[in-house]
Design a protein around this nucleic acid. Structure first.
Lengths: 242, 242
DNA sequence: TTGCGTCAAAAAGTCATACTTTTGGCGACA
DNA sequence: TGTCGCCAAAAGTATGACTTTTTGACGCAA
């Protein structure tokens, strides 16, 4: 055991010391608690978290690779302004969703979604495998069932599964990688009471339309239907936050 | 000086040992030279690159944070399959563009672009500042001039500036972060001889249309014009690679 | 007073080493 | 043949010594 851990940042963190310190510092940066321009030293990080310099260095290197901080000799570790952040890094996204700009982050993601989901729908219509078509049909079916029973969590699960499958079916690995993002947006919406207790039947019908258009290999129809899904969701979110 | 550097991976790398080893290993993973499932040990990395264990560990931690490798006790460092890669990480994108899936990466990025650039154009029409409008107009002007003179590099610069400004004008930080990606796609197209020696006047006219629509705060028009820009570029690229 | 050169200290970068912890594999025993 | 336990391999962590870069301060000169 380290001499005297002072047990400062024992955030549980069952992933080793590294993961714990990384999370703690990452949160502090993206939340703005550590403002841009502020400088830390490795020594202070060691002291604050009760870890050795080696661990602190590894953490800083990872944070640096996300654009959150920059390390310079004789100066220390400087917190970077937002413009330098790698805003597509899954961890940065998650940390921001945990922090105070949760709303802003969700808005950004929604706008983004408006761009890539229709494209994914069009591509999926050209490339989806029969299995993927079946999965999407099943997801729509689940949406209908859970929408009727009023089980919002289950509905959310089915919705997420639908979009994740569609993105994977696009055959574009970058689009597929955005599945987590969409899941977050959907979850954020549900857990903020934006979902009517009785999910909009029209939304479900549109999902069904997308699934059928993909099955029929009709890119134009699937893209149009997806666009309408997004518009509807976007309007709801803007009404809440914007 | 280290005892006997064996001068193995002296790739120049004027950013410290860390940067050099990171680049070398990153390239080897994304290029497929190190196949998924293959395991390395820290010791072997130290030996291969003539660095200490501390440096090797920091590199692995960063690679791990990109999803390229995973480190487990008693096993070593395992190269991860593509599905786990953080494909939006700027370095991963750059490394892939340097490697053998350059073509595939460019195709992925083009498809993505078809999604987000029209959205950015629409948002920009609602949010662009007068300065940004002016910058876009200037970029279009440069495109005309350099297109006429046949200076492809300068044309490329102006084109990139146009799109970067537009993305920034969208007011969405995630869209803005995609500017580098667009620049890469444009550069890839130019440096692969896809550009006609005399740039398509119609393309320039469309850029002008976007700039004017943004200035007039007309989202529908700017989005439509941008969509046509992408379609044209996309067709050219598909003809070359697809 | 200003401007430039030098110097010392601060902090990261690097290395070496010792120790701890986890875990996969192998061998012994039932 | 199957299971249990031990061992060793490899990462995780800690510590300390040394190197290198950079900056801020001091002093000297114009």
């Amino acid at each position: 055991m380290p001499p005297s851990p002072t047990s400062p940042t024992r955030t549980g963190s069952p992933g080793g010391l590294h993961a714990g310190v990384l999370h703690a510092l990452g949160i502090r940066v993206v939340s703005g608690e550590l403002a841009a321009g502020q400088v830390l030293t490795l020594e202070s990080i060691c002291a604050d978290h009760g870890v050795s310099r080696a661990v602190a260095r590894e953490v800083i290197r990872v944070l640096e690779s996300m654009g959150l901080v920059a390390s310079r000799r004789r100066v220390g570790v400087t917190v970077q302004p937002r413009e330098g952040w790698h805003v597509f890094d899954p961890r940065v996204i998650r940390w921001r969703l945990e922090g105070p700009d949760r709303a802003e982050q969700l808005l950004s993601l929604s706008e983004l979604r408006r761009g890539f989901e229709p494209v994914a729908a069009a591509l999926a219509a050209e490339r989806a495998t029969p299995e993927q078509c079946a999965q999407m049909a099943a997801a729509v079916s689940d949406m209908v069932v859970h929408g009727r029973s009023g089980d919002l969590e289950a509905y959310l699960g089915a919705d997420s599964r639908f979009h994740a499958t569609l993105l994977a079916a696009s055959g574009n690995e970058m689009l597929r990688a955005l599945a987590d993002v969409v899941t977050e947006v959907l979850a954020g919406r549900t857990h903020h009471g934006l979902m009517p207790a009785d999910p909009n039947p029209e939304a479900i019908a549109l999902h069904d339309e997308v699934a059928r258009a993909v099955r029929d290999q009709d890119p134009v129809r699937s893209e149009a239907a997806m666009r309408r899904i997004i518009e509807e969701a976007s309007d709801a979110m803007r009404a809440e936050f914007g």
